[in-house]
Design a protein around this nucleic acid. Structure first.
Length: 321
DNA sequence: TCAGCAAGCCGCCAAT
DNA sequence: ATATTGGCGGCTTGCT
């Protein structure tokens, strides 16, 4: 789970490059997987850029990126990472190479529309997966056996990991680092990138939904109310009444819209508020707990740790440096 | 860390 | 016929 023991040897990662790839996602993967964060001992990934062809790939808007290795280099990889795939159809040779790598046992990882390439290779058959929301239907059309979940940031299905739009790829990569080299390593990466060390390290397989305002405005109203009155106590019965629904129906609609249970969502909102307060500086943990609606500092600490992965004070320290 | 107890979660089913 | 609703009850979770 979260605190993985570091593997004895480095993990060979093949990062796929091809004409018209999403440069941002490619760069993120190269940045995160290319070198261990400063000060971290032990093995790391061994990154190889693998070109669709050895002629190098065109970078949208600016010249060519030379690559030394062609598709045959997928053969030695423990992990294959496919950044956003712009052009359909996916060339058969690429699909074949990806499929072969997976059958050999390589972990297949996609960012954004990279999932389309994995689907074309048959890697996602009968699996749960995600991609950029705009292409969710394309993914489903490519292979109807895929259970496309467009509400999540990433889906970790063990030997196949898919992630949603660009920035979700970063979350996914940090999650993967935690899985392969432990939470410390993931935190170190996050610090290096100057992003808060969160979202990684939860044992559940896919958790975070970019919670959007649900179409049902009865729910939206309730959510707005809770956000505006976090310090108050909120029970499902109260929230349901506010939405003019029975608790049972409220629960169902809420779950349907957000992927979270009502109370779990409330708790996450509270943690989010606590985080924002911490980012804003000062305030004792006790005052923070009160402002965010936690009954006591203990409860705050408990949930904060569970969801963010570090203690409130640890988070503050990480935020300051 | 722990126990007791209230609340939450959710499968199931009948009613609408 | 099918979809939605909401009550029941039991198991789980988590607060104090």
């Amino acid at each position: 789970m979260a605190s993985a023991r570091a593997p004895a040897r480095p993990l060979a990662v093949a990062l796929l490059a091809y004409d018209g790839l999403c440069w941002f996602e490619f760069a993120c993967a190269r940045e995160i997987l290319g070198a261990a964060p400063r000060g971290l001992a032990g093995p790391w990934y061994e990154l190889r850029i693998v070109g669709e062809s050895r002629r190098g790939v065109r970078i949208p808007g600016s010249g060519r990126l030379p690559v030394k290795r062609g598709l045959e280099a997928l053969a030695g990889a423990d992990i294959v990472v496919v950044p956003g795939w712009r052009a359909l159809p996916v060339p058969a040779r690429v699909a074949r190479a990806l499929r072969a790598a997976h059958e050999r046992g390589a972990r297949m990882v996609s960012i954004c529309t990279g999932a389309l390439a994995l689907a074309a290779a048959g890697v996602l058959a009968a699996r749960r997966a995600t991609t950029h929301w705009r292409d969710a239907h394309t993914l489903a059309a490519l292979d109807p056996t895929i259970e496309v979940d467009e509400g999540v940031l990433y889906v970790d299905d063990g030997d196949v990991i898919t992630s949603a739009g660009s920035s979700a790829g970063i979350d996914m990569l940090i999650h993967m680092v935690a899985r392969d080299f432990g939470r410390r390593a993931a935190n170190a990466v996050a610090r290096e990138l100057v992003i808060p060390a969160h979202r990684e390290g939860d044992q559940r397989q896919f958790i975070e939904r970019p919670v959007q305002a649900p179409a049902d405005d009865r729910l939206a109203r309730v959510m707005r109310h809770v956000r505006g009155n976090l310090p108050q106590r909120h029970t499902v019965a109260q929230l349901a009444a506010r939405a003019a629904m029975s608790p049972r129906s409220f629960y169902r609609h809420f779950r349907q819209a957000t992927g979270l249970t009502p109370i779990d969502w409330v708790v996450r909102e509270r943690v989010l508020a606590a985080r924002q307060l911490l980012d804003g500086g000062q305030k004792s943990v006790k005052a923070l707990a009160q402002a965010a609606g936690f009954g006591s500092p203990e409860v705050l600490r408990h949930h904060f740790r569970r969801i963010v992965g570090v203690s409130p004070t640890g988070y503050r320290r990480a935020a300051i440096r």
